[in-house]
Design a protein around this nucleic acid. Structure first.
Lengths: 147, 147
DNA sequence: CTTGTCCATGTAAAATTATGCAGACCATTT
DNA sequence: AAATGGTCTGCATAATTTTACATGGACAAG
């Protein structure tokens, strides 16, 4: 149904407490009205870069301490690996562990097209109102990256 | 045979590059002369707090930078054989083949007195500014070793 | 020397996770 | 409308990981 919503819920759940197994996480999603199979949870976990320890699935540790933020273009050149688009989403792939850094820098820009971002370990979802806006900011990313 | 040594090697291997699966890690250990089953690797992974992402098994971010004290002292207890001093140099003798491992652990500490290290097969030169500093870190080594 | 207790580890099976494939949808093009 | 191309997901199963149990070694006490 709504992949982005489901993944946001996953991040929210894991932020609260780790999930012992994927089946456990699936049950917790179900309690929030989201019914999917373990296979889908497995795919979400991959995409979000969620990490597994013996204590269960957890969010990746946040990367860097606060420091004066370099310009977005510098950060992109440092961490960005790939830019994709899926209708109203732009998906940024970063080097492992640095999605958060990029997302923070992006949020600070306050681009009008950007309705929200969700960052995993090496993936960022940038939500826009529609595909038109997504295409526009996708181009902005590519331009800044190349700059 | 030697659990501590094996686990040190696991940390060393994962520090260099992630391992795709436990079987993969088992093979890499075998190449270093350590033969155990995948089940044992699974237990080591639990004990060490190693983390799994879709990209394979990795060291937790916190272990790569933080928590150096235990790591170095463990490594010293395992590999160190002798500590000498020659004016502004401290010379560490290790068991054959493991000088590099010790040197890496030492470098990660970023001790202010240490200006640089050079590791051979079983010997490490630790350079300091002067004899006074060398004496200080020589004592640190001895304390950690005994700890 | 023998017995009892820990530990570490292997073995085999259970449990969990990953994935090839096919169907359902959607949006776009012909 | 039909065809096309892409994405998402469930199903079934393969692949991987975890674990209950058994074995053997080391060590201390008797």
């Amino acid at each position: 149904m709504d992949k982005l919503y489901r993944r946001t819920q996953i991040l929210d759940l894991l932020g609260a407490e780790p999930a012992a197994t994927q089946a456990d996480l699936r049950r917790k999603l179900e309690r929030r009205g989201i019914r999917v199979t373990q296979a889908t949870v497995s795919r979400d976990i991959e995409e979000l870069g969620v990490v597994k320890t013996r204590g269960g699935y957890r969010l990746p540790e946040s990367a860097e301490a606060a420091a004066p933020q370099p310009a977005l273009s510098v950060i992109l050149k440092e961490f960005l690996r790939e830019v994709r688009q899926a209708s109203n989403l732009v998906i940024l792939k970063t080097h492992p562990g640095n999605a958060h850094t990029v997302a923070v820098a992006l949020d600070a820009e306050h681009w009008p097209e950007v309705m929200g971002t969700v960052a995993g370990d090496d993936t960022i979802f940038v939500a826009t109102h529609g595909a038109r806006e997504a295409a526009r900011i996708r181009k902005k990313f590519l331009d800044l990256w190349a700059a």
